[in-house]
C-alpha cells in the first residue's frame, strides 16, 4: 500500500458532516483491510446516518458515556460495528488510533458491539433481530421513570426478516412508545439473497423486501413511517427532527433510509460480494483516492 500512514488522529472539530463521513468510510476500509476481518458494505451504507446522528441528533456526552439522561443508540445490525466505531472515535469516545486493535484479541472493539467492553454502547448485538426489543424496553423504562431521553435503534433491511423484529414492532405500538425511533438501513441487499441463476434485481441480487412491502408492514403495525435518502444529510436531519417532534400521537417512528450498500466506492456499490470481503492493497489505494483521502490518511 502506497505509504499511507496508518494510525493518524482526529481531523479537527470543525469538519463538516460530509468530510466526517468520507473519513469514516476510509477508517472502515483501512481497518477492515488491516485486521483482515469485518463487514464492509453495511458500514458504508449506514455511514451518513451515523454521522448525522452522532454529530447532530443524539444528545450524548462522549466524555461521560454513562450519563443517565443520554439518548440511547442501539446498533441492531451489529455486524456493521466497525462503521459505528469509526464514528464514535471521531466523536471522541476513544482515540481513532484504537481502531487498529479491532478484532485483534483483548480489544474493546469487538467484531460485534459488546457493551461489556466499550463504554457508550447501549446493547450487545450481533445476532440479528434482537436490538429493537431492547429499545422497546429502554423506551418503556424511560417512560416509567419519567426520563425525557429518546431511544434510537438501527436495523438492516435483511435483518427485518427476523420474526423478533415484528414481535418488538407490535409491542412498541401497543405500548405507544413515541420516544422510540427505528432507522432501517434500506440498502436493498443482505448477505446472500439468492443464487445468481435464479434472480437479480437491485445491484446484483434480489432485495430483502420487494417494492414497498417493508413500509406497508410498519404502517400496518401503526408506526409513523418517514422515508429519507440515507445519503443526503438534509433529508436525514429533517426526518430526525420530525421523529423527535413529539407529535406522532403516541406512535413510534421508523425512518426508512434508502441507501446503497458499499456507498462511496465505485467497485463496491450495490454488490453483494462486498457484504464482508477484505479489500486488497490495490483496492484500499483505490478507495483512498475515491474518498479523497490524502497520503497521510486524512480527508483532503
Amino acid at each position: 500500500m502506497t505509504g499511507v500512514v496508518v494510525g493518524d488522529g482526529e481531523i479537527g472539530p470543525d469538519a463538516d458532516l460530509a468530510t466526517r463521513a468520507r473519513y469514516g468510510r476510509w477508517l472502515v476500509v483501512r481497518t477492515v483491510a488491516s485486521s483482515g476481518a469485518g463487514h464492509i458494505g453495511g458500514p458504508l451504507s449506514a455511514m451518513d446516518l451515523w454521522v448525522a446522528l452522532y454529530f447532530r441528533v443524539l444528545n450524548i456526552r462522549p466524555a461521560d458515556p454513562a450519563w443517565p439522561h443520554r439518548d440511547r443508540f442501539i446498533l441492531s445490525k451489529g455486524h456493521s460495528a466497525i462503521g459505528l466505531y469509526a464514528v464514535m472515535a471521531q466523536r471522541g469516545y476513544f482515540p481513532v488510533d484504537e481502531l487498529a486493535t479491532f478484532d485483534r484479541g483483548d480489544s474493546r472493539l469487538q467484531g460485534h458491539p459488546d457493551m461489556t467492553c466499550l463504554p457508550g454502547l447501549d446493547a450487545s448485538t450481533g445476532s440479528l433481530g434482537q436490538g429493537l426489543a431492547v429499545g422497546v424496553g429502554i423506551a418503556l423504562g424511560a417512560r416509567l421513570r419519567g426520563l425525557p431521553f429518546r431511544t434510537w435503534v438501527m436495523l438492516g433491511d435483511g435483518e427485518c426478516q427476523e420474526g423478533m423484529v415484528w414481535e418488538a414492532t407490535l409491542a412498541a405500538s401497543r405500548l405507544g412508545l413515541e420516544n422510540l425511533m427505528a432507522i432501517v438501513d434500506v440498502n436493498g441487499l443482505q448477505q446472500y439473497g439468492l443464487p445468481k441463476v435464479l434472480e437479480a434485481s437491485r445491484g446484483d441480487r434480489r432485495e430483502p423486501w420487494p417494492g414497498d412491502q417493508l413500509r406497508r408492514v410498519f404502517q400496518s403495525f401503526d408506526w409513523r413511517v418517514l422515508d429519507v435518502d440515507g445519503h443526503d444529510f438534509d433529508s436525514i436531519l429533517a426526518a430526525c427532527d420530525i421523529a423527535r417532534d413529539g407529535k406522532s400521537a403516541g406512535r413510534p417512528t421508523v425512518i426508512l433510509a434508502r441507501t446503497i450498500k458499499g456507498r462511496g466506492l465505485s467497485f463496491m456499490e450495490g454488490r453483494h460480494a462486498w457484504h464482508a470481503r477484505i479489500p486488497t492493497p490495490d483496492e484500499v489505494e483505490q478507495a483512498r483516492l475515491e474518498l479523497g483521502i490524502d497520503e497521510s490518511g486524512r480527508p483532503a
Binding site: G111, H112, S127
Partner: peptide, 8 residues
C-alpha cells in the same frame, strides 16, 4: 469463526 467473536 473468522474473528466474529462471542456472539458467533
Amino acid at each position: 469463526t473468522g474473528l466474529t467473536g462471542k456472539t458467533h
